[in-house]
Nucleic acid binder design. Sequence first.
RNA 1: GCCCAGGUGGCGGAAUUGGUAGACGCGCCUGACUCAAAAUCAGGUUUCUUCGGAAGUGGGGGUUCGAUUCCCCCCCUGGGUACCA
Length: 872
Amino acid sequence: MTGVAFSPTYRPFSKKMASNSPEYNFSEIESTWQKYWEDRKTFATSSKTDKEKYYVLSMFPYPSGTGLHIGHPLGYTGADILARYQRARGKNVLHPIGWDAFGLPTEQYAIKTGRHPRQTSIERIAHFRNQLRSVGFSYDYDREVDTTDPNYYRWTQFIFLQLFKRGLAYVDKRPVWWCEELKTVLANEEVIDGKSERGNHPVVRRSLRQWVLRITAYAERLLEDLKDIDWPESTKKMQQEWIGKSVGATARFALDGFDETIEIYTTRPDTLLGATYMVLSPEHPLVPKITSEDNRDAVSKYIESAAAKSDLERTDLAKEKTGVFTGSYALHPLTGDKIPVWIADYVLISYGTGAIMAVPAHDTRDFEFAEQFNLPIVQVIKGDGTESLPYIGDGTLINSDEYDDLSWQEAKKKITAKLKEAGTGEESTQYKLRDWLFSRQRYWGEPFPVAWVSREDYDKAVESGDLADWLPEEPVAYTDESGTLHALPVPPKSLPLELPNVESYEPAGTGESPLKKADDWMEIWYQFETGEFLPARQEKPEGEKWIRASRETNTMPQWAGSCWYYLRYMDPKNSTQLASKEALEYWKTPDMYIGGSEHAVLHLLYSRFWHKVLFDEGLVPTKEPFSHLFHQGMLLGEDGKKISKSAGNGIDPVEVVNQYGADTLRLYLMFLGPLEARKPWNSKGIGGVSRFLNKAWREIVGRDGNLSPKIRDDHQESEETEILLNQTIEKVSQDLDKLSFNTAISQLMILVNHLHASDAFRLTTAKKFVQLLAPMAPHISEELWSRLGESHSVAWGPWPDVDNSKLVSDDVKIVFQVNGKFRGQSLIPKSSTEEDVLALAKKEPRVIAQIEGKTIRKVVFVPGKILNIVAN
RNA sequence: GCCCAGGUGGCGGAAUUGGUAGACGCGCCUGACUCAAAAUCAGGUUUCUUCGGAAGUGGGGGUUCGAUUCCCCCCCUGGGUACCA
């Protein structure tokens, strides 16, 4: 303990802090201490220290127009408690906050009002910051990041260039939602039941030029490295399934009467002899070629109807299988049998090879299809004999010639080997993971740091050597009606490439972003060495390195800025690197990352991908960005339903702060239940924690505003108080370590209830209690701490130690049982033997009543816990 | 359908290397203070009960001296995912 100086009366805090009011006036106390933290930069962090680091990260918010949602302070309080706890334990804590401010709602607001979204963002951020401050989070506000700040997105663009040069970024036509009425591309969340969210207009799929990131190149590592990180199992599982690795075989079936072969992928090569027909997806390139004259009409009609359906509809119609015969036959690679080739939309072009061998006896979908169209079904795997078809389980082979009686695993190997020998197949691995569609036809996002140029100009730039470190092996090119263009990276030193001002934030009406209309930014004379540019309508500047270029109309998605923000916090003002080597080496990665499980797949997978690219580039020292992850659960409305505008069951955290105080809000959010659980808000329950804080206040502050007369230094602390205090220190410490805040608070309540019932207790006991309370209810704790005679912030600890000698009493409670049922208890010395306890038990009237007239068969004795007499 | 998490009083929840089920809080009940109310304080609160006890952690079975905890089957709720070959 540091507080040696002791005075039984209240002594003004040396830094002229709160009044000596006898009342717990939370609003005065909270604003006083928030100002104190701010003025003194209590929570500012530096990496220039020998102290052990602790980096706790909360998922940064999107500063929406509606302000703080009750879900924010839930997770943020958890993280803040951890930060304050570790700080008190002497760690050098980094606890930052920032703003994920690019995004659709701000853009839509800009369209509506004509205001620049940056302006809107800055205002909303200020509003959010004030609201967060009022809850008393111990952020280092000097480290704020804002994804829409050019000094930030400069480095987002820089990372994109890393991906670009490694061949991980390319351009392709990809389908998007298009609304003819609104003349705009819509995001998935703007499309509801096939209609636009705004105006309820019909939408269609339309292919547009898009940037795509080759995340699939990292599929295996993203899967493999999940083993090394401490995340909720369910989240790991979700990522695992999203990546969706499967190991099987590809096989090529010759086509009867054609030179081409159909390549298929199967996870069950052991069932190869059960393949009785084949199915191509309607989009498969071989379809037009192999469709016979007789079937052409039916096939083209089918393709048309399949194309008209969205993915959603296709899966909605899952119950009934549809398909048509192409009129062609394939030859079975092992038997040479002729088997019919069909097309059906239950086979997806985007997975595997877009074609399958159908084994109706052992695949549910193939079975349904075969039944529908009367195709042969041949069982080749035999289970225990009771199975019915389709049979998906394991077993031994039948109807498979030389492979009969083999186990399926054995057959898998042998048949794959046979295919390989014949040159008609081989072992193969597939992933469900697709490349990441990384562009939006929007204004409010990071511009792509590229210039689209002609082949000649591209070659010129290559030859100059100016961009030698930044070019992909294969140029990124795109061809349309107007010709072929090549993507030239802008020189990194010229970043940021800032968004131009535009007159209107309305989309261009062509499916392209509003940037399309910023002519002087879009169509330019471009200096490829320096990155300078001038409007193309001006005269071409002098110099070899000036070329004609167009900018990219697409911008990056909101994910881009949130993929790496945890790195920027380490060194947020660095103007020459995304973060200094020293900062990256010192802070490494967050020790704890807290956020909602809605990000279990996308954000966390994208971040891992970028981090690995940066690791490969030698820019970060670790393979994984988030070694420890925790999801706070969803807070439900008072009615037990999801909080929503339409249900009108929202809770305004600011209102709660005004009514009860920030400490009460924090404490109550944590006391509701386990942080990870989903649980309903209860406006009556908040009175309980409010009462607790008032009770704690009254135990320390007397009615006259001085220290409570119960706090006496000449008091001999009772053994009971000593034990309970030490148990509380131990319990609270352990609970904070495992983020079990609800039980930590209940333990503090038990201690306060005990102090309340005691006649007197020592000053050190009061101080230790305040220290334990401080991470959860920091404002009242600072106030009490100062009133207890301390002259520096309680935030700096030290955290109280457990005195193990005072953790347990010499007497322990032992429970008597008869046949496993409770029949009384007694306080006995720890050293008592089984004989002593049994003798004692036999004197217990309730025990006597139960064993009377029975024979004792056995006695089970667990020292310090129970004595169980088995009798009948 | 499949995968994951969960199911304990009127409510939120506590207790799992198997050892008194219901900590702590809400709500409710009784009492004190008050003209009264609020606040505060003292006490009670799983159900049934013949007041001895008995039953009880979604349901059924099992292992055990003893099961909320371990095993098997089933039901329900929430989340994820969806024709991935």
